[in-house]
């Protein structure tokens, strides 16, 4: 590898890690509070991407300013959180919090099956590509390598802002503290009068919106087509499992590790590109079954 390709691989990896982190952090946040792994989380990412690409394509064709691409991403994320996340928690998950884990998995898996087809029904099988946001910010030259500002600067900034924002939100605000309290001890939190129902709803909507935002941010960099949701749930699970379920900061580091691993594979062993994240996950879990930053749960007898 030459210096330039190494640099390219690092840039690719960072940009990719930023996107994966956005999705994984929502998944791990929801798990931390609700103790449910939402298999449909990848579909929320895909729908966020579809919304941004299709609406953006339509309004830019009507002559609206491409600057609107950025607020549109936030709108898409909010739509995913409120229109999909809220009803899913309210109408479905609320019925199964006390049921066995297998059953909870089956329920979110069923939602995943449904949402995968919803995408197909609404957006069809053809790919969507809308890269105004990418074009708008232009390129930057770093050590002789050209790269898009959008991927090299904006995406990592958003990911870091999300990480810090989430940290501040959970530790400094009242709502955040309530969420943390429920995460740490559901029964105790309820016994001192915390409205767990509201906390659950809020967390799920927030987590879903983060997945949607991940998709929205990804849409200018890639074609949006059927199947990306399925790929993303497995990938973000790999990140979350490698980090340790419920670990937010850990998810960020793991996303970076997996992102870099994958982008270096693109240049070194292109066939292995898809496999690298899983190989990293398997290697980590073999040595630390609870993940890099997780702590083994002690069973009380």
């Amino acid at each position: 590898m030459t210096g330039a390709t190494i640099l390219l691989a690092i840039f690719d990896g960072v940009a990719y890690a930023a996107l994966v982190f956005m999705v994984a952090v929502g998944l791990t946040l929801i798990f931390g509070v609700l103790r449910i792994l939402n298999v449909a989380h990848g579909s929320l990412y895909a729908i966020g991407a579809y919304l941004t690409a299709s609406i953006g394509g339509a309004i830019f064709a009507m002559g609206w300013s491409p600057v609107l691409a950025f607020p549109l991403m936030l709108v898409s994320a909010a739509l995913v959180g409120v229109l999909l996340g809220a009803p899913m928690e309210r109408l479905l998950l609320r019925r199964i919090y006390h049921r066995p884990e297998v059953l909870q998995l089956l329920v979110t898996f069923a939602v995943f099956m449904i949402l995968e087809d919803v995408q197909r029904l609404v957006w069809g099988n053809q790919p969507y590509f809308e890269s105004s946001a990418l074009a708008l910010l232009g390129n930057v030259q770093v050590f002789g390598v050209y790269y898009t500002v959008y991927q090299l600067i904006l995406l990592p900034l958003v990911a870091i802002a999300t990480l810090i924002g989430l940290r501040l939100f959970l530790r400094r605000t009242l709502t955040g503290k309530l969420i943390t309290a429920v995460t740490e001890d559901r029964e105790a939190a309820q016994s001192i009068g915390i409205d767990a129902d509201r906390v659950y709803l809020l967390t799920f909507v927030l987590g879903a919106a983060l997945a949607g935002l991940g998709g929205a941010l990804a849409s200018p960099t890639t074609s949006v087509l059927p199947g990306i949701g399925a790929e993303m749930i497995v990938l973000s699970f790999a990140v979350v499992a490698t980090a340790g379920l419920g670990q937010i900061e850990g998810a960020a580091l793991t996303a970076l590790m997996i992102g870099l691993g994958r982008s270096f594979a693109v240049y070194l062993f292109p066939e292995l590109q898809v496999l690298v994240p899983y190989l990293i996950m398997l290697a980590v879990l073999l040595i630390r079954p609870e993940g890099l930053f997780g702590s083994p749960a002690a069973r009380k007898i």
């Binding site: 479905l92 089956l106 329920v107 099956m113 449904i114 995968e116």
Partner: peptide
């Protein structure tokens, strides 16, 4: 919408 039908059925059964 085949997956969708299956998913809906799966929810109903569970």
């Amino acid at each position: 919408a085949w997956q969708m039908v299956l998913g809906g059925f799966l929810l109903a059964i569970i």
